[in-house]
């Protein structure tokens, strides 16, 4: 008697993706789909696809989907969730989409405490348009629009989205994870599970930033790309939970007093 010990999770469509070899979008899609299935949410989940490499995400999940314009996924998700609070709504966005053109939408969506889940994939570059500098590109990292490497005098430092959003007073669950090794991937799934759980319990806004590789536009073979992420991105983008719904507000030290 043969026993099935591993199979495709039902929320993930049985199709070939367009993602490049070594790209971790496929892994992150799978984590989201597994969590949606394990929590029994597939039939009431609506995904919001972004503009970027994951623009075709709606082909890879077996949930209903709505395609957003560039950066506006949190606004579209707000519209869906406010119209149908019984639905589970998640947006899936890259770093150009969320942290550049969509910065206004994500900040206000988080600040309103919209009870949605955001999967924020940070690979430090614009992938679909061919490797331009992103707001998350590392200092000195070469991109097609910073051929000499990101100059922080001209472009500033990479934006740490999880840290930035965790300063908001509104209760939220905000975490950063990575999928560059199997162990980190297991931990990333746990963060995504907690994010969806908070939404399913109608508790708060939730966002998981997931560090991801882009071998094609980084110009590295997949194995070297995971090492590059570990050596360059992990020190700047620390992993962990930045905010929980019951968390304390950050209080500044009184003026003139040392902490």
């Amino acid at each position: 008697m043969l026993e099935t010990v591993f199979c495709r999770t039902p929320a993930l469509a049985d199709v070939t993706t367009h993602y490049c070899p070594g790209c971790t979008h496929g892994v992150i899609h799978r984590l989201v789909a597994e969590v949606v299935d394990e929590l029994g949410l597939r039939e009431r989940t609506i995904g919001i696809a972004p503009v970027g490499c994951s623009v075709l995400a709606y082909n890879y999940f077996t949930t209903d989907f709505q395609e957003a314009s560039h950066g506006r996924a949190p606004a579209v998700a707000t519209g869906v969730k406010r119209a149908r609070p019984d639905l589970i709504v998640f947006s899936y966005q890259g770093d150009g989409d969320l942290a550049s053109i969509g910065m206004g939408e994500i900040v206000h969506c988080a600040n309103r405490g919209e009870k949605i889940t955001v999967i924020f994939v940070n690979n430090a570059i614009y992938g679909m348009t061919g490797g331009q500098m992103a707001p998350t590109t590392m200092p000195g990292q070469i991109a097609t629009t910073c051929p000499l490497g990101r100059d922080v005098e001209l472009a500033g430092y990479p934006i740490r989205v999880a840290e930035l959003l965790s300063t908001l007073r509104t209760p939220a669950f905000i975490a950063r994870a990575s999928v560059h090794t199997p162990l980190y991937t297991v931990k990333a799934k746990e963060m995504i599970r907690r994010a969806f759980r908070h939404q399913a319990d109608n508790r708060c806004f939730s966002l998981v930033e997931v560090l991801s590789t882009c071998p094609t536009n980084w110009g590295l073979p997949p194995a070297e790309a995971t090492s590059w992420l570990e050596e360059n991105m992990l020190p700047y983008y620390p992993l962990g939970i930045f905010k929980e719904p019951g968390g304390e507000d950050r209080a500044p030290s009184p003026l003139g007093e040392k902490r």
Partner: peptide, 25 residues
Amino acid sequence: TFVQAESEVAASNMIYGAAGSGERV
């Protein structure tokens, strides 16, 4: 439900999302 959006750009995308769920908006 009334939502004061952060901008008209966001508002137009919120109505897009709400209409996608089939509700009048």
